Amino acid sequence: MTTSAVGVAVLDDIDARPGSTTSLLRTLIGVHLRPLGGVISSAALVRLAGDLGIPPARARTAITRLKQRGLLLSTSGGYAIDPAALPMLRRGDRRIFDVRTMSEDDGWMLVSATVPESRRDLRHQLRRRLLYLGAGSVAPSLWILPGHLFDEAHELLHEIGAREYATLFLATDPQPSRPLPEAVADWWDLVALRAEHDRFLASVDALDLTRPFAAHLGLIDSWRVLPYIDPGLPTALLPADWPGARSVETFQRLHAELAARAADHVRAVAADDRPATPPAR
């Protein structure tokens, strides 16, 4: 996991449960603070949390937690994004807003990783992070991903210190002992993935689109984990009624409809009480 200069683990997209107070504030910070120059006043952040239905006391507790996890720094009168969190936020931008779907002609990659018994902690972390990269499990210590995730897999292995235990392969035509769609259904937990898509689509139905800021934050917060765990497999390898394309279309349509009005609201609130610029680090 990403770590700051002082060794604090930075809260990643996969570490906060969508819909929780911490998750909503983490999403608010990730989406809106960078366009504001990375800083916001305490009063403005708490007020925006209130617009999401979060009481002030609970908001302040969550803000403290986000500071402890390396996402925020205290400034004179407000908060700033910790520079150590920026790579994680940029990675989230790519996965959340630039959704890629694998075509039948795209290649695959395999990750073979044998971590020593003495590094059980790393073995657990590697498995967890590969799952949240969208990897399927072919066999113990052997993972498969769409080829377009090669750079992210390579970055992940270096980030957690597992590169020395892993060998990466590129492939064009996997040949399992049974039809490839059947193998895919074993390599990935399609039942769990479908449940996540159904959860997201149900959450969209509950959004109040007359409140664009809250609706937009709720949309992104509900969506943000899906692009990590769903690798965007080719349609031919998925069940005929797979909801993935509908989820992507729904997210992209509502994001385009709500984003500008949500940003206008944040700018207006932030302009009421600008914090001092944080000192250089």
Score class of each variant (00 low, 15 high):
209 L>S: 05
153 A>C: 15
86 L>F: 10
123 R>F: 06
168 L>C: 02
279 P>T: 08
201 L>C: 04
161 G>H: 07
122 L>A: 05
173 D>P: 00
53 G>R: 11
2 T>F: 08
130 L>D: 07
28 L>W: 05
77 G>N: 03
170 L>W: 03
169 F>T: 12
110 L>D: 04
45 L>Q: 02
278 P>M: 07
191 V>W: 10
271 A>E: 08
224 R>T: 01
226 L>M: 11
66 L>I: 06
185 A>W: 03
109 M>Q: 14
43 A>C: 03
19 G>Q: 05
268 A>V: 02
168 L>A: 05
143 W>E: 09
141 S>E: 14
63 I>L: 06
219 L>A: 09
264 D>H: 15
248 V>D: 11
110 L>H: 02
217 L>K: 01
56 P>C: 11
126 L>K: 05
261 R>Q: 15
195 A>V: 00
22 T>Q: 13
246 R>K: 15
174 P>K: 03
97 F>K: 00
272 D>R: 15
197 H>R: 03
209 L>N: 02
109 M>G: 14
101 T>H: 06
14 I>C: 15
38 G>R: 01
261 R>C: 00
134 G>N: 08
166 A>G: 06
92 G>L: 12
42 S>L: 06
273 D>H: 14
157 L>Y: 12
140 P>N: 12
72 L>G: 02
74 S>Y: 02
50 G>V: 01
249 E>A: 15
23 S>P: 04
22 T>A: 15
219 L>E: 03
92 G>F: 09
95 R>G: 00
205 D>C: 05
135 A>R: 03
261 R>H: 10
145 L>I: 07
22 T>D: 15
160 I>M: 13
176 P>N: 05
75 T>R: 10
274 R>F: 01
157 L>D: 12
180 L>E: 06
76 S>V: 07
57 A>W: 04
43 A>Y: 01
259 A>F: 07
180 L>P: 08
111 V>R: 10
165 Y>C: 04
195 A>F: 05
98 D>Q: 09
51 D>K: 13
18 P>E: 10
108 W>S: 01
259 A>C: 07
98 D>S: 11
31 V>Q: 13
149 L>N: 09
66 L>G: 02
60 R>I: 07
159 E>I: 01
104 E>V: 09
1 M>A: 06
96 I>G: 04
152 E>W: 09
237 L>M: 08
163 R>Y: 02
138 V>H: 01
133 L>C: 14
112 S>H: 13
103 S>H: 05
96 I>N: 04
230 D>S: 09
127 R>N: 13
8 V>G: 02
216 H>N: 06
158 H>G: 14
141 S>G: 11
9 A>S: 15
102 M>T: 05
231 P>E: 08
205 D>P: 00
180 L>T: 02
25 L>H: 04
76 S>G: 03
156 L>C: 04
112 S>T: 09
11 L>V: 15
173 D>A: 13
218 G>P: 03
98 D>H: 14
224 R>L: 06
209 L>R: 14
17 R>W: 12
93 D>K: 13
119 R>I: 03
